[in-house]
Amino acid sequence: MAVPMSNVDEIRDRVILGEFGVRNVHSTNFPGNYPGYDDSWDLKKFKKNFRLDVVHMDENTLEFDMVGIDAAIANAFRRILLAEVPTMAVEKVFIYNNTSIIQDEILAHRLGLVPIKADPRLFEYRNAGDEEGTEIDTIQLQLKIKCTRNPRASKDASDPKELYLNHMVYSRDMKWVPIGNQADVFADANIGPVHGDILLAQLRPGQELDIVMHCVKGIGKDHAKFSPVATASYRLLPEITLLQTIEGEKAERLKRCFSPGVIELEDVNGKQVAKVINSRLDTCSREVLRHDDLKNLVKLGRVRDHFIFSVESTGILPPDVLVSEAINVLIAKCQKFLTELDSVTEME
């Protein structure tokens, strides 16, 4: 069993999950707040404490731990991921023909939300008021499709899939039309929608769409379609402390109060004793607090500076790239701020 923390340490480092509310939510470890603690910021100390462990990564999702950092900074990364890492998305839709049932504006809105596979780092922002777009700031896509009757359909067919051709318009029908030298530059970039199976519209014979789209670079603050992540968030590492030995039926019940794998029973002297195995897996449902006899035997806490980040990319960029891009954005912001500061001091 873990040694109970000192009271001050608990207030400084843990968020406590009470039955009716969360305690110690704010970070209080600013310099001079606690006598006997040196909270002044020090790069060396920070370097020693700071940890970043990638827990899991695949094509589109990334889970990593960020330890030893203030909530404000961690949150800044989350916010930047959501709102300030640029991507390319359909911004201008030129509808030359739309005889389908779907309204022009709704279709344009749907097209805008389709993630476009193109590395935004290779493009520039388009200038405000710029109508035409050039090879450095615009990707041109085309959607030209017409629904017809399937000549090979059997006579008594009633299924639209069999009766018609092209009656479902998918994102894969959006075709890249290179501008200028884009064909050479992005020859192997395979520009187009990330997912080919997003249903955009349904057609019936005779209806057609003839649409040209301009994708531009933008950030999620402007519109959610530019956000590179499906979501990016973090949670704090749960910490479960058993204040007493819990055994027998109680232990069994305790185990059931947490997510599977959090608490396991160990055989100690022929008795089933509960033991915290992996508190990370807990979803913090606080179920244990509903059991009157158990709630005083456990302390539910979360480590204040241990952030379990989860980043789900929309597929435009791999999630690790997104995180490093987010860091770059923050660095750029800091640098800009520093230059601003310098210019202010110079003027004085």
């Binding site: 509310g21 969360v22 939510v25 704010h26 909530a71 404000a72 800044a76 989350r78 704090l236």
Partner: peptide, 8 residues
């Protein structure tokens, strides 16, 4: 703020 809320 990035900090937890005091209430559930």
């Amino acid at each position: 703020t990035g900090e937890p809320l005091e209430a559930y």
